[in-house]
Amino acid sequence: MSRLTAELLLAAAGAYGACGLAVGLLFLLRGLDRVDPAARGAHAFRPLLLPGLLLLWPLVLWRWRVLAR
């Protein structure tokens, strides 16, 4: 892999992660309570979800939409 390709790949991964962070924080603050009753009033576990939200944010957005209906 050329240096340029490697830099582009890492930039894309960084952008994906930044989107994931934004979606993850929004989900933790606004969406989680609506899609999972067991999360209501439970806060200490939420930081544990952030890595998964960051990695799976497109799937999270889709499930969030489905479950919020």
């Binding site: 999972d36 009753p37 067991a38 999360a39 209501r40 009033g41 439970a42 200490a44 576990f45 544990l48």
Partner: peptide
């Protein structure tokens, strides 16, 4: 389980 979540 479906009771309120805890970290562990």
């Amino acid at each position: 389980m479906s009771a309120r979540y805890v970290p562990v």
